[in-house]
Design a protein around this nucleic acid. Sequence first.
DNA 1: ATAAATAAGGATAAAAATATCCTTTAATAT
DNA 2: ATATTAAAGGATATTTTTATCCTTATTTAT
Lengths: 136, 136
Amino acid sequence: MIYMATRSVAGEKTGLKEIAEAINSPQAFTAKILQNLVKDGLVSSTKGPHGGFCIKRPTAEIFLAEIVASIDGDQLFIGCALGLEKCTEDHPCAVHYKFKAVRDHLTGMLQTTHLEDVSDRVITGLSFLKTGTNKR
Amino acid sequence: MIYMATRSVAGEKTGLKEIAEAINSPQAFTAKILQNLVKDGLVSSTKGPHGGFCIKRPTAEIFLAEIVASIDGDQLFIGCALGLEKCTEDHPCAVHYKFKAVRDHLTGMLQTTHLEDVSDRVITGLSFLKTGTNKR
DNA sequence: ATAAATAAGGATAAAAATATCCTTTAATAT
DNA sequence: ATATTAAAGGATATTTTTATCCTTATTTAT
């Protein structure tokens, strides 16, 4: 998403191959994740020559939380740190409140940081999407 | 560890079976994790009748960070949010600083919260180690 | 219309995390 | 000494996550 954001300024498409290379992620795997993002309406795709993927909405309106939820589901946001099925104010796990503070911080960050924030740093060369030797 | 903390007041041993039941975790799997904690010096174990596991140091001196590191390794503390092999101030990933703030919060919490903090809440009935129907 | 390019989707495979089983080792009690 | 209890450790199995492969569907250019 960040790479596409650095590219889809005027609604230009970016091909799978290019995206996968840019983030040093296997093509087929990247394709599956893109399919998911398409299914969830964050990205549009077109087949055929000059086809590819494109972010649907303005990058300043897409927050990281949406992307994380689309790719990884909601466990990051609602799962219990100790793995309890039911972990609530009524029946909190032993680290519920300590953990809640951290999670609220994380959730808040993801809900207030939009793609533009992040992609701008890449465009200006302040940060990176790969190292040349990534782990995954 | 939290369950043992609620039990090993005067250096009493707690058996594997009892621990596994208390936290609703499979016995054999719990045993592997306990082996690890023993190897890392957080827990002592004795075999034979009346054998079992016991936390080695005062619970007020064992911080959650140590336990997490023993069980899950250090990726939680040092891993890059975007999966870059090398993610540093010099070569930061696109969410490095945003993520760093959250991680510092998490790390800080784990490094300042000790077992006693957490087990006391269980002892006084304010929080719980299982629900009856856990996920894992 | 046909060929070429490209994503979609289903089936499968590989790797990692989670979990189990069984044999061995050590401690205790008789 | 022997039997019993309980953890240690190695091998294996299951599940989940990560990744690949191959066929199909769609779009564009000729």
